[in-house]
Amino acid sequence: MPATIKDVAKLAGVSIKTVSNVLNGYRYLTDETRGRVERAMADLDYRPNIAARNLRRGRTGVIALALPNLSSPYFAEIAHLVVKEAAARDLTVLIDATDGDPEREKLVAEGFRSQLLDGMILQPWSISAPFLRARVDKTPLVLLGERRVPTADSVAIDSRAAAQAAVAHLVGLGRRRIAAVGAPRKRSGPLEPGRRNEGYERGLVENGLPFDPALVAHPVGDHTPEAVAAAVDDLLERAKDIDAVFAFNDRAALGVIRALTSRGLRVPEDVAVVGIDDIEAARLGTPSLSTIAPDKPGIVRTALELLTDRIAGVDRPARQVVADFTLIERESTLGGVPHH
Protein backbone atom coordinates (compact mmCIF):
# COMPACT_ATOMS: atom_id res chain seq x y z
CA MET A 1 0.00 0.00 0.00
CA PRO A 2 1.41 3.45 -0.89
CA ALA A 3 2.58 5.62 1.99
CA THR A 4 0.22 8.35 3.18
CA ILE A 5 0.85 11.83 4.54
CA LYS A 6 -0.02 10.40 7.98
CA ASP A 7 2.79 7.85 7.63
CA VAL A 8 5.25 10.62 6.74
CA ALA A 9 4.20 12.71 9.74
CA LYS A 10 4.61 9.74 12.09
CA LEU A 11 8.08 8.83 10.81
CA ALA A 12 9.28 12.46 10.89
CA GLY A 13 7.80 13.05 14.33
CA VAL A 14 5.76 16.07 13.20
CA SER A 15 2.14 16.94 12.60
CA ILE A 16 0.28 16.29 9.35
CA LYS A 17 -0.01 20.10 9.02
CA THR A 18 3.79 20.41 9.08
CA VAL A 19 4.14 17.83 6.30
CA SER A 20 1.53 19.76 4.31
CA ASN A 21 3.50 22.98 4.85
CA VAL A 22 6.64 21.32 3.46
CA LEU A 23 4.72 20.04 0.42
CA ASN A 24 3.28 23.51 -0.21
CA GLY A 25 6.65 25.25 0.01
CA TYR A 26 5.82 27.16 3.18
CA ARG A 27 8.78 29.44 3.84
CA TYR A 28 8.70 29.75 7.62
CA LEU A 29 9.99 26.30 8.60
CA THR A 30 13.37 25.49 10.12
CA ASP A 31 15.85 23.68 7.91
CA GLU A 32 15.96 20.87 10.51
CA THR A 33 12.18 20.32 10.37
CA ARG A 34 12.06 20.51 6.59
CA GLY A 35 14.95 18.06 6.36
CA ARG A 36 13.26 15.52 8.68
CA VAL A 37 10.09 15.61 6.61
CA GLU A 38 11.94 15.32 3.29
CA ARG A 39 14.00 12.36 4.60
CA ALA A 40 10.82 10.65 5.79
CA MET A 41 9.19 11.15 2.38
CA ALA A 42 12.27 9.69 0.69
CA ASP A 43 12.46 6.70 3.07
CA LEU A 44 8.78 5.91 2.50
CA ASP A 45 8.90 6.70 -1.23
CA TYR A 46 5.95 9.03 -0.61
CA ARG A 47 4.32 10.52 -3.73
CA PRO A 48 1.78 13.30 -3.10
CA ASN A 49 -1.39 13.17 -5.17
CA ILE A 50 -1.02 16.59 -6.78
CA ALA A 51 -4.28 16.43 -8.71
CA ALA A 52 -6.29 15.61 -5.59
CA ARG A 53 -4.49 18.29 -3.60
CA ASN A 54 -5.24 20.92 -6.23
CA LEU A 55 -8.88 19.80 -6.40
CA ARG A 56 -9.26 20.24 -2.65
CA ARG A 57 -7.82 23.74 -2.94
CA GLY A 58 -10.07 24.66 -5.83
CA ARG A 59 -7.05 24.97 -8.13
CA THR A 60 -5.95 23.42 -11.38
CA GLY A 61 -2.17 23.50 -10.90
CA VAL A 62 -1.89 25.21 -14.30
CA ILE A 63 -0.59 28.70 -15.11
CA ALA A 64 -0.29 30.50 -18.45
CA LEU A 65 2.76 32.24 -19.88
CA ALA A 66 2.10 34.67 -22.75
CA LEU A 67 5.15 36.07 -24.55
CA PRO A 68 5.35 38.19 -27.71
CA ASN A 69 7.57 35.93 -29.80
CA LEU A 70 8.91 32.44 -29.12
CA SER A 71 11.29 32.63 -32.08
CA SER A 72 13.21 35.27 -30.13
CA PRO A 73 16.15 33.59 -28.34
CA TYR A 74 15.57 35.79 -25.27
CA PHE A 75 11.90 34.86 -24.91
CA ALA A 76 12.67 31.20 -25.62
CA GLU A 77 15.12 31.24 -22.71
CA ILE A 78 12.55 32.93 -20.47
CA ALA A 79 9.95 30.29 -21.39
CA HIS A 80 12.40 27.48 -20.59
CA LEU A 81 13.20 29.00 -17.20
CA VAL A 82 9.52 29.54 -16.36
CA VAL A 83 8.68 25.91 -17.14
CA LYS A 84 11.60 24.72 -14.99
CA GLU A 85 10.77 27.01 -12.05
CA ALA A 86 7.06 26.19 -12.24
CA ALA A 87 7.76 22.44 -12.24
CA ALA A 88 9.64 22.86 -8.96
CA ARG A 89 6.40 24.31 -7.58
CA ASP A 90 4.20 21.49 -8.97
CA LEU A 91 2.77 23.82 -11.63
CA THR A 92 2.19 23.11 -15.30
CA VAL A 93 2.69 25.94 -17.80
CA LEU A 94 0.59 26.63 -20.89
CA ILE A 95 2.62 28.81 -23.28
CA ASP A 96 1.15 31.23 -25.80
CA ALA A 97 2.87 33.48 -28.34
CA THR A 98 0.84 36.67 -28.84
CA ASP A 99 3.00 38.16 -31.61
CA GLY A 100 2.41 41.45 -29.78
CA ASP A 101 -1.12 41.50 -31.22
CA PRO A 102 -3.29 43.73 -29.00
CA GLU A 103 -6.38 41.55 -29.31
CA ARG A 104 -4.50 38.41 -28.28
CA GLU A 105 -2.88 40.25 -25.39
CA LYS A 106 -6.30 41.50 -24.29
CA LEU A 107 -7.65 37.93 -24.29
CA VAL A 108 -4.89 36.94 -21.88
CA ALA A 109 -5.27 40.00 -19.65
CA GLU A 110 -9.05 39.61 -19.53
CA GLY A 111 -8.73 36.05 -18.29
CA PHE A 112 -9.71 34.12 -21.41
CA ARG A 113 -10.32 30.54 -20.21
CA SER A 114 -9.21 31.70 -16.77
CA GLN A 115 -11.35 28.95 -15.19
CA LEU A 116 -8.61 26.58 -16.39
CA LEU A 117 -5.81 28.62 -14.83
CA ASP A 118 -4.53 29.44 -11.37
CA GLY A 119 -2.61 32.47 -12.66
CA MET A 120 -0.95 34.16 -15.63
CA ILE A 121 2.40 35.71 -16.56
CA LEU A 122 2.21 38.17 -19.45
CA GLN A 123 4.78 40.27 -21.29
CA PRO A 124 2.63 42.92 -22.98
CA TRP A 125 3.82 44.77 -26.06
CA SER A 126 0.71 46.44 -27.42
CA ILE A 127 -2.00 46.82 -24.80
CA SER A 128 -1.95 50.06 -22.85
CA ALA A 129 -1.43 50.70 -19.16
CA PRO A 130 -4.99 52.13 -18.83
CA PHE A 131 -6.39 48.88 -20.25
CA LEU A 132 -4.40 46.84 -17.73
CA ARG A 133 -5.48 49.11 -14.89
CA ALA A 134 -9.13 48.62 -15.85
CA ARG A 135 -8.79 44.83 -15.93
CA VAL A 136 -11.83 43.17 -14.29
CA ASP A 137 -10.77 39.52 -14.25
CA LYS A 138 -9.49 38.42 -10.84
CA THR A 139 -7.14 35.68 -12.03
CA PRO A 140 -3.70 36.47 -10.54
CA LEU A 141 -1.51 38.23 -13.11
CA VAL A 142 2.19 39.14 -13.14
CA LEU A 143 3.63 41.36 -15.87
CA LEU A 144 7.08 40.99 -17.38
CA GLY A 145 8.69 44.03 -18.99
CA GLU A 146 8.40 47.71 -18.36
CA ARG A 147 4.71 48.35 -19.00
CA ARG A 148 4.01 48.72 -15.28
CA VAL A 149 0.65 49.48 -13.69
CA PRO A 150 -0.14 50.11 -10.00
CA THR A 151 -2.73 47.32 -9.94
CA ALA A 152 -0.50 44.40 -11.03
CA ASP A 153 2.76 42.87 -9.87
CA SER A 154 5.59 43.22 -12.39
CA VAL A 155 9.28 42.49 -12.82
CA ALA A 156 11.76 43.89 -15.37
CA ILE A 157 15.22 45.36 -15.71
CA ASP A 158 15.65 49.11 -16.11
CA SER A 159 16.27 49.29 -19.87
CA ARG A 160 17.31 52.94 -19.70
CA ALA A 161 20.00 52.22 -17.12
CA ALA A 162 21.13 49.14 -19.07
CA ALA A 163 21.63 51.21 -22.22
CA GLN A 164 23.56 53.83 -20.28
CA ALA A 165 25.87 51.11 -18.96
CA ALA A 166 26.48 49.82 -22.49
CA VAL A 167 27.37 53.30 -23.77
CA ALA A 168 29.61 53.99 -20.77
CA HIS A 169 31.49 50.76 -21.50
CA LEU A 170 32.13 51.82 -25.10
CA VAL A 171 33.21 55.33 -24.08
CA GLY A 172 35.55 53.81 -21.50
CA LEU A 173 37.27 51.95 -24.33
CA GLY A 174 37.93 55.23 -26.17
CA ARG A 175 35.07 55.03 -28.65
CA ARG A 176 33.63 58.38 -29.66
CA ARG A 177 31.31 57.81 -32.65
CA ILE A 178 28.85 55.38 -31.10
CA ALA A 179 25.90 54.38 -33.24
CA ALA A 180 22.61 52.82 -32.11
CA VAL A 181 20.80 50.04 -33.98
CA GLY A 182 17.24 49.15 -33.00
CA ALA A 183 15.66 52.47 -32.04
CA PRO A 184 11.89 52.61 -32.74
CA ARG A 185 10.57 54.92 -35.44
CA LYS A 186 7.43 55.61 -33.43
CA ARG A 187 6.41 55.58 -29.78
CA SER A 188 3.76 52.86 -30.03
CA GLY A 189 4.63 49.23 -29.35
CA PRO A 190 6.85 47.80 -26.62
CA LEU A 191 8.36 50.30 -24.19
CA GLU A 192 11.81 48.72 -23.98
CA PRO A 193 13.23 50.01 -27.30
CA GLY A 194 12.14 53.55 -26.48
CA ARG A 195 13.68 53.38 -23.02
CA ARG A 196 16.89 51.94 -24.45
CA ASN A 197 17.00 54.82 -26.92
CA GLU A 198 16.62 57.28 -24.03
CA GLY A 199 19.43 55.51 -22.19
CA TYR A 200 21.64 55.64 -25.29
CA GLU A 201 21.13 59.39 -25.66
CA ARG A 202 21.58 60.01 -21.94
CA GLY A 203 24.71 57.84 -21.86
CA LEU A 204 26.32 59.93 -24.60
CA VAL A 205 25.57 63.23 -22.89
CA GLU A 206 26.72 61.97 -19.47
CA ASN A 207 30.04 61.03 -21.02
CA GLY A 208 30.56 64.33 -22.80
CA LEU A 209 29.56 63.21 -26.29
CA PRO A 210 26.96 64.92 -28.49
CA PHE A 211 23.86 63.08 -29.68
CA ASP A 212 23.90 62.81 -33.48
CA PRO A 213 20.66 61.58 -35.14
CA ALA A 214 22.73 60.37 -38.10
CA LEU A 215 24.14 57.67 -35.83
CA VAL A 216 20.73 56.10 -35.10
CA ALA A 217 19.56 53.24 -37.35
CA HIS A 218 16.02 51.83 -37.46
CA PRO A 219 15.88 48.23 -38.74
CA VAL A 220 12.54 47.39 -40.34
CA GLY A 221 10.63 44.50 -38.82
CA ASP A 222 11.83 42.04 -36.20
CA HIS A 223 15.60 42.56 -36.47
CA THR A 224 16.04 39.93 -39.17
CA PRO A 225 19.57 39.64 -40.64
CA GLU A 226 18.32 41.31 -43.82
CA ALA A 227 16.75 44.22 -41.94
CA VAL A 228 19.84 44.73 -39.79
CA ALA A 229 22.15 44.56 -42.84
CA ALA A 230 20.07 47.22 -44.60
CA ALA A 231 20.17 49.39 -41.47
CA VAL A 232 23.95 49.05 -41.23
CA ASP A 233 24.32 49.98 -44.91
CA ASP A 234 22.19 53.06 -44.33
CA LEU A 235 24.18 53.91 -41.22
CA LEU A 236 27.54 53.66 -43.00
CA GLU A 237 26.27 55.86 -45.82
CA ARG A 238 25.45 58.61 -43.33
CA ALA A 239 28.31 58.15 -40.88
CA LYS A 240 31.40 56.42 -42.26
CA ASP A 241 33.42 57.24 -39.14
CA ILE A 242 31.48 55.17 -36.58
CA ASP A 243 33.76 53.25 -34.21
CA ALA A 244 31.13 51.50 -32.05
CA VAL A 245 27.56 50.21 -32.19
CA PHE A 246 25.12 49.70 -29.34
CA ALA A 247 22.43 47.28 -30.54
CA PHE A 248 19.13 47.18 -28.69
CA ASN A 249 19.19 43.38 -28.38
CA ASP A 250 21.69 40.59 -29.00
CA ARG A 251 19.92 39.31 -32.11
CA ALA A 252 20.42 42.71 -33.74
CA ALA A 253 23.99 42.92 -32.41
CA LEU A 254 24.94 39.61 -34.03
CA GLY A 255 23.42 40.85 -37.29
CA VAL A 256 25.47 44.04 -36.98
CA ILE A 257 28.69 42.05 -36.56
CA ARG A 258 27.92 39.97 -39.63
CA ALA A 259 27.03 43.04 -41.69
CA LEU A 260 30.15 44.95 -40.64
CA THR A 261 32.41 41.95 -41.32
CA SER A 262 30.93 41.40 -44.78
CA ARG A 263 31.74 45.03 -45.57
CA GLY A 264 35.39 44.62 -44.66
CA LEU A 265 35.26 46.15 -41.19
CA ARG A 266 36.87 44.38 -38.25
CA VAL A 267 35.09 43.85 -34.92
CA PRO A 268 36.23 45.24 -32.57
CA GLU A 269 39.35 46.75 -34.12
CA ASP A 270 37.39 49.08 -36.41
CA VAL A 271 33.94 48.99 -34.78
CA ALA A 272 33.15 47.66 -31.29
CA VAL A 273 29.69 46.12 -30.78
CA VAL A 274 27.65 45.58 -27.61
CA GLY A 275 24.10 44.22 -27.22
CA ILE A 276 21.50 43.41 -24.57
CA ASP A 277 20.06 40.00 -23.51
CA ASP A 278 23.06 37.62 -23.18
CA ILE A 279 21.46 34.93 -25.34
CA GLU A 280 23.38 31.68 -25.82
CA ALA A 281 24.61 32.69 -29.29
CA ALA A 282 26.31 35.74 -27.73
CA ARG A 283 28.75 33.41 -26.00
CA LEU A 284 29.31 31.14 -28.99
CA GLY A 285 29.90 33.61 -31.84
CA THR A 286 33.22 34.74 -33.27
CA PRO A 287 33.89 37.25 -31.93
CA SER A 288 31.89 36.54 -28.77
CA LEU A 289 29.49 39.36 -27.99
CA SER A 290 29.80 41.87 -25.17
CA THR A 291 26.32 42.36 -23.77
CA ILE A 292 24.11 43.54 -20.96
CA ALA A 293 22.88 40.36 -19.23
CA PRO A 294 19.53 40.63 -17.43
CA ASP A 295 19.27 38.35 -14.41
CA LYS A 296 16.91 35.98 -16.26
CA PRO A 297 16.79 33.32 -13.52
CA GLY A 298 16.09 36.08 -10.98
CA ILE A 299 13.37 37.61 -13.16
CA VAL A 300 11.63 34.25 -13.52
CA ARG A 301 12.04 33.27 -9.88
CA THR A 302 10.61 36.62 -8.75
CA ALA A 303 7.70 36.38 -11.19
CA LEU A 304 6.78 32.91 -9.90
CA GLU A 305 7.10 34.06 -6.28
CA LEU A 306 4.81 37.01 -6.93
CA LEU A 307 2.32 34.81 -8.79
CA THR A 308 2.23 31.96 -6.27
CA ASP A 309 1.74 34.47 -3.44
CA ARG A 310 -1.30 35.83 -5.27
CA ILE A 311 -2.60 32.32 -6.00
CA ALA A 312 -2.27 31.54 -2.30
CA GLY A 313 -4.43 34.57 -1.50
CA VAL A 314 -1.74 36.94 -0.23
CA ASP A 315 -3.35 40.40 -0.06
CA ARG A 316 -0.89 43.29 -0.39
CA PRO A 317 -0.24 46.27 -2.65
CA ALA A 318 1.14 45.43 -6.10
CA ARG A 319 4.93 45.22 -6.31
CA GLN A 320 7.00 46.56 -9.20
CA VAL A 321 10.34 44.76 -8.93
CA VAL A 322 13.40 46.09 -10.79
CA ALA A 323 15.64 43.15 -11.65
CA ASP A 324 19.44 43.23 -11.77
CA PHE A 325 21.60 43.25 -14.89
CA THR A 326 25.32 42.78 -15.49
CA LEU A 327 27.66 44.06 -18.18
CA ILE A 328 29.55 41.09 -19.65
CA GLU A 329 32.68 42.13 -21.55
CA ARG A 330 33.66 39.83 -24.40
CA GLU A 331 35.63 39.90 -27.65
CA SER A 332 33.33 42.21 -29.62
CA THR A 333 34.53 45.18 -27.53
CA LEU A 334 37.79 44.07 -25.88
CA GLY A 335 39.90 43.23 -28.94
CA GLY A 336 41.54 46.62 -29.29
CA VAL A 337 40.91 50.36 -29.24
CA PRO A 338 41.42 52.45 -32.38
CA HIS A 339 43.90 55.33 -32.29
CA HIS A 340 42.49 58.75 -33.14
Rank of each mutant, 00 (worst) to 15 (best):
R147N: 14
L94S: 14
L215D: 07
Q320E: 03
D45H: 15
S288M: 08
L306R: 05
R263N: 00
A229Q: 06
D158T: 04
G298C: 09
A217I: 02
E38N: 14
S188K: 10
V108Q: 11
R258K: 09
H218C: 05
R310S: 10
R177F: 10
V155Y: 13
K6E: 11
T30E: 12
P130M: 06
D137V: 10
A66T: 03
A231Y: 14
R316P: 00
E110G: 13
L143A: 07
D250N: 03
K106Y: 06
R34A: 12
A231V: 06
L191T: 12
R263L: 11
T18Y: 10
P213I: 06
I242N: 02
G100D: 06
P338D: 03
A86E: 04
V267E: 07
V232L: 08
V82E: 00
A166L: 12
A66Q: 02
R176E: 10
M41W: 09
L334Q: 13
A214K: 14
L209N: 08
T33G: 07
V181W: 01
L215H: 07
R283N: 11
A152V: 15
D90I: 11
G58W: 05
A156R: 05
L11A: 04
G285A: 15
A52V: 07
F248N: 10
P317K: 09
A12Y: 02
G264R: 08
N249Y: 10
L304G: 00
A293P: 09
L204C: 05
A86H: 03
R56S: 13
F248G: 11
Y28V: 15
R330H: 08
R59T: 14
K240I: 00
V245D: 03
D270H: 12
A97S: 15
Y28C: 03
G58Q: 11
D250Y: 07
I50P: 05
A323R: 06
A129P: 00
A282C: 13
R27L: 14
L204D: 09
P68L: 01
V300G: 11
L122R: 01
E32L: 08
K10W: 01
H223G: 04
E329P: 02
Y200T: 02
R177D: 07
G61M: 08
V274P: 03
A40L: 12
R59A: 09
G182E: 04
A52E: 05
A239T: 13
M41Y: 11
